[in-house]
């Protein structure tokens, strides 16, 4: 059996030839499943998929994004980081994904936010795998509230409970816009997407109507820092490091009280 997941993404990432070669190497395949997040019907020959049963869940999906609200925020300058800062202050400390079109932009935006006193992290395809994983763990467990990401984070990643999606840059393609917004308002939950527009930018054609304008208040407190941090302990059984060592270390240093150490114990139990 062969499953091609997120096939449209594989094609757009240029895996066509590699996939074709792999599929050629397979023996007899009795069953093939192709999953695609894009509502396009063109299926290349190399997949070996003939006379398929097509199940289109797009209609149902469009209804399920009913929970999504779209708002527009105006930036007076071409550099939108100050407007983004104000928007984040207005939205408060909630899991938020900020999308940029380029890797460099995610890093500069993240640096600008740090300068203004907001803790955030960037996430893009140019990062090494362990770094990407660590960032996602922290975003999922809430020790990072604001993730500045490229379109890598728009698809397929299971990041639950994203409250807000912010388009720092608007994507060039309608598909990407849909995928980014799909990070919030998932499975009947409600969510809001914001787009930041500078005077020079015009709204893309894929927006059928102009989203309502959101006026940001002048003075809002900076969002609180996340209530916890994630510690990465590079050690385990092979290093003779057990959960009791970690709990012991913290209580000895009086870094945590007994109640916390109980919680930590539970946590390390699950992790080690």
């Amino acid at each position: 059996m062969l499953v091609l997941d997120e096939f449209d993404k594989s094609l757009s990432m240029g895996f066509q030839e590699q996939m074709a070669e792999i599929i050629k190497e397979l023996g007899s395949v009795e069953k093939r499943v192709l999953a695609s997040a894009t509502n396009k019907q063109h299926i290349p020959l190399f997949t070996g998929i003939t006379n398929p049963k097509v199940l289109n869940f797009y209609k149902a999906a469009e209804q399920s994004t009913d929970g999504l609200e779209l708002k527009r925020v105006l930036s007076p300058t071409a550099d939108k980081s100050v407007t983004l800062f104000k928007l984040l202050c207005y939205l408060g400390a909630e899991p938020t994904l900020i999308f940029c079109n380029q890797r460099d932009t995610t890093e500069t935006v993240q640096a600008a936010l740090t300068g203004l006193g907001i803790q955030s992290t960037f996430f893009h395809g140019g990062m090494a795998q362990p770094e990407r994983e660590k960032t996602l763990v922290q975003f999922r467990n809430g020790s990072i509230q604001f993730l500045v990401a490229s379109d890598l984070a728009a698809r397929g990643l299971d990041i639950p409970q994203v409250k807000h999606v912010i388009h720092y840059d608007l994507p060039l393609k309608a598909d990407d816009f849909v995928h980014r917004n799909g990070r919030t308002a998932r499975m009947h939950a409600e969510g809001t997407a914001y787009l930041i527009k500078s005077p020079e930018e015009s709204l893309p054609e894929y927006l059928s109507e102009t989203p309502p304008l959101l006026d940001l208040p002048q003075q809002e407190p900076v969002p609180k820092h996340a209530p916890w941090i994630t510690l990465y302990i590079s050690g385990g059984k092979k290093d003779k490091l057990g959960k009791t060592d970690i709990v012991g270390f913290f209580s000895k240093k009086a870094i945590c009280k007994k109640t916390i150490s109980e919680k930590l114990k539970c946590w390390t139990l699950c992790r080690l």
Partner: peptide
Amino acid sequence: NALQEAAIPAIQARPNVILLAPTGSGKT
């Protein structure tokens, strides 16, 4: 969910199936 209810029997019955659905819909 509805997608899974429809897709699972289809995949079991048919040799070739194409699932068109957005992410987060329970495809995996």
